[in-house]
Structure formats: structure tokens, C-alpha cells
Design a protein around this nucleic acid. Structure first.
Lengths: 235, 235
DNA sequence: TTGTCGATTTTTTTCGAAAAACACAGCGGT
DNA sequence: ACCGCTGTGTTTTTCGAAAAAAATCGACAA
């Protein structure tokens, strides 16, 4: 089989997985980064054209996103992007502090060499990713934070943390990351968390992590404050 | 239009909502009660016949159940009922104690008259439902427990609690509820929780609730212990 | 016996079109 | 002017069949 046949028109190595998964990832990305606005209507027909696929995969992906709380299903009126609000932002922050604290403690307690190495690696990759490559940095940032919790033997708890992380990302993008994000020494905070975790100092790691979230939360809240949520909502 | 036309062959007033929802509820019930065993394969064709509908609603419902952790999606190999394990049972218990404690405190703190009345009502209905009507009792039992938390202003947290509750139900049915469930005075425990909540005694309510879960957990664990999980799994 | 390859049969996944539900605008009656 | 009704166009939801993928079975060779 010739290479030109294998890698035909700009498709690279795409449909290794199902169309449903492709649509899911794609839409999820668009929602998290704010490329499609909160409240925006998600018409199957439009999406069909946009993502070049049938109605079934789209519908399925939207169902998946519904349980992720990123999409709302209106009974006989289709789907729309979930709304955002200052209240939800606060709730997410609070829950993340509570749940990640639990997970972190379990993780550090159960941690082994494997976890330690993966964590160091994740941190290194994050540090190496330039801040300007926003989407990539976000991915590495998430990887680092999840790596901290990874040794925790509570799959369900981990899943909750993962979801909350994703829900939170939207607000980061919403606040815009141009100004002042580096004013705070975020790298230092990450390094401190890493060091504490590697020392197996559960208490210190927990304090650092929560403080990290609180500070980021504070920072974002300020930026979000001036912002009228009804203004960043479609329809 | 004649009544005989309106209510033709045994259809009563059924399809008020979408087929997807019908399938979702139906399957969810079957999974929670153990009518379909953990690990069982869920073939769309079989379900199509069984539930008398097309492939799309089934597929959609299965996607929904996937994010509820009640169904697993295997990449190109369809769906199966999520597995159960002693470890997961313990995890659920632990998480429920942590999260419901949080939710209960918030709920009681924010509670108003409306909440109080709904709670009393839910308790009454539960008491009035005979234990032998297992499914109905389960429903009322869930309503009561969720009513306790309902005033909490954290929709996401509530959703988590709801999910955990459902995940837990499976183990209740698995353990079988014939013997000894009444040996413990469960009604008393419920009444105590109710009283403490109505008194707005957060600490006491929390203690009662957690103890209630721990006891039930202990009770179920004993029953589940003898039980080889691989034996209650299909395939 | 063990293992591999190929053809056939399920099973999953996706598509395109039909059916049902809904929104909206225009019409007529009060 | 207001309200409700009906017809039209749009959108959502569902169905049935085709395409893609995996599992099964058996023959053949090591």
C-alpha cells in the first residue's frame, strides 16, 4: 500500500478511534477554551457540517458532554453549552480544595517510586512548555496537577477531580490570561508543591496546593468581577 | 377523537418524553437492581428488541450511563455493565461520608422553611412505604436522603452525592435484603437524623448520618464478604 | 498438539432520510 | 387591539439499512 494512499488529503493519522470520540474531544476543547460561548445553541445540523460526520456520533458526544456538565440537554429542544456564573466558579474552587486535598493526602501516602518519577516528568514538561502556547501549556498543567493525585487509590474521586479541573479551565480562559498571570510567581508555587510532595510532607503539600488554588481563584475572581457573565453568553 | 383511539393497545400515557430518556431510566433501573449483572454485555441489537426502539436512543442512553459510571464503553467493542468490587464499595462508602457530610452541613446551614417541609414529607413517605415494595422503598429512601442535602447551594456537589448514592444502591441489591435488615433499627436511625436536622443541630445530624452510613456499610460488607464478586459477574 | 491464516458471521458504528416536535408568522374572530 | 388558531418552515429525534470492525470457526502447516 502506498504512502500517498495511506496519508491522503491532510488527514494524517486521524480516525484511529471512533467518530464519537473525535467529536467529543473536539467539542470539549472548543467549550473549555471558550471558542463556543456559554449558552450557545449546539445544532446537530451545523455541527454535522462543521465536523463532517453524521448525526449519531454528534448526538452521542453531546450526551457524553451532558454528564460532564459542559452541555445542557433541553428536553425536545436540543443541546446548548452550559452556562457559567460567579457562583459556580466559587463552588468549583471550594470543591476542588476539598476533594483535591483528600486525593492528595491519599496519593502521597500511597505513593511509590513510579508515581514520583511520573510526577517529576510531568513537572519538567510543564516547565519546558512556553506559556505562550496556551493550549499546550494548559494540557501540561493539568497533567502535572493530576500526576500529583495519581497514586490515590480512589478512581471515583480522581474522576471527580478531573471533572472539576475541566469545569474550572473555562473560567481561566474566560478571564483571559494576558496580563499579570506571571506577576504572581506561579512557577514557584508549583515548585513548592512538587518539593513537598517528593518529600512526602503531606501537610505542607496540602497547604501549598490549596494556597495555590486560593491564590489563583482570587486572581481570577478579580478579573472575572468586572466581567458581566451575561455578556460572555450567547443568546 | 374517541378515547379508544387515544388510549389504544396498552400504551396508556407513555411516550411523553423522549425514547432516549425512557431507555436511560429503564436500563439504569435494571443495572441498579442487578437485573442485568455486572460485566454483562449490552448489545444494541438485543436492547433494540427488548426495549422496542431504534439504535440511536439506545446508544445515547448508554453514553449517558457511561458517564454515570454504570456502564463501560469499550472502544470498538460496544458497551458492558460496569463491574463491582469490594474495593469500590469501600471507596463509595468513604466518599459518601466525606461528601454528604459537606453537603449536609451546607444544607442545614442554609435551610429554610421550604426545605424543612419537604424533608418531613419525604420522611413520612418513606416511613409509609412498606419495606416489601423494595423498589418503591428504595426510591423513597433516596428521596429522603437527598432531601436532607437539598438546601445545600452546591449543585455540583449534590450531583456527586446523587451519583454516589446510585452507585451504592447496586451493592445493596447485590447483598440481598432479605435477612436482618430490620434487625438493626434503621427507622430509628432515620428518625434521629431527621430530628437533628430539624433542630438545626449540624454536628449531631452529621454524626448520625455518618454513623448511619457506616453501620449500613458494615452490615453490607459482612454480607458481601462471603460473596465472591466474580460469581455475580456475567462473562 | 499448537498456532496461524482466511473466510464467514456477528456486532458495532455510522449514515441519510423520514417522522415528530416545535417556533413563528399571518389570518380571522372577538 | 387582543387572543387564539392554522399553516409553513425549521429543528430535533428516531428509524432502517449500509459500512466498518471484530470475533468465530475451520483448515492447514509446523
Amino acid at each position: 500500500m502506498s504512502a500517498s494512499l495511506q496519508f491522503s488529503h491532510a488527514e494524517a493519522v486521524p480516525q484511529s478511534t471512533s467518530a464519537t470520540r473525535r467529536v467529543y474531544e473536539n467539542l470539549r476543547g472548543k467549550i473549555l477554551t471558550g471558542e463556543v460561548l456559554p449558552g450557545a445553541k449546539l445544532k446537530v445540523d451545523t455541527l454535522k457540517d462543521m465536523l463532517d460526520t453524521g448525526a449519531s456520533p454528534i448526538r452521542e458526544a453531546l450526551s457524553l458532554l451532558t454528564s460532564d456538565q459542559l452541555v445542557e440537554r433541553l428536553d425536545q429542544r436540543g443541546f446548548r453549552v452550559a452556562e457559567v456564573s460567579a457562583a459556580q466558579f466559587r463552588e468549583i474552587l471550594k470543591l476542588r480544595c476539598a476533594l483535591e486535598d483528600m486525593a492528595l493526602r491519599e496519593s502521597v501516602r500511597a505513593a511509590g517510586q513510579e508515581w514520583e518519577e511520573a510526577l517529576v516528568l510531568a513537572h519538567h514538561r510543564m516547565v519546558r512548555t512556553p506559556r505562550v502556547s496556551v493550549r499546550e501549556f494548559e494540557e501540561q498543567h493539568k497533567s502535572f496537577h493530576m500526576a500529583l493525585l495519581a497514586a490515590c487509590e480512589s478512581p471515583i474521586l480522581l474522576k471527580f477531580c478531573d471533572r472539576l479541573y475541566d469545569l474550572n479551565i473555562r473560567y481561566r480562559y474566560l478571564a483571559g490570561r494576558s496580563q499579570g498571570y506571571e506577576a504572581r510567581d506561579v512557577s514557584k508555587e508549583h515548585a513548592d508543591i512538587l518539593a513537598a510532595a517528593l518529600d512526602r510532607d503531606v501537610e505542607l503539600a496540602s497547604v501549598c496546593l490549596i494556597q495555590h488554588y486560593r491564590r489563583t481563584g482570587q486572581f481570577l475572581a478579580e478579573r472575572l468581577e468586572g466581567l458581566d457573565f451575561s455578556k460572555v453568553t450567547a443568546r
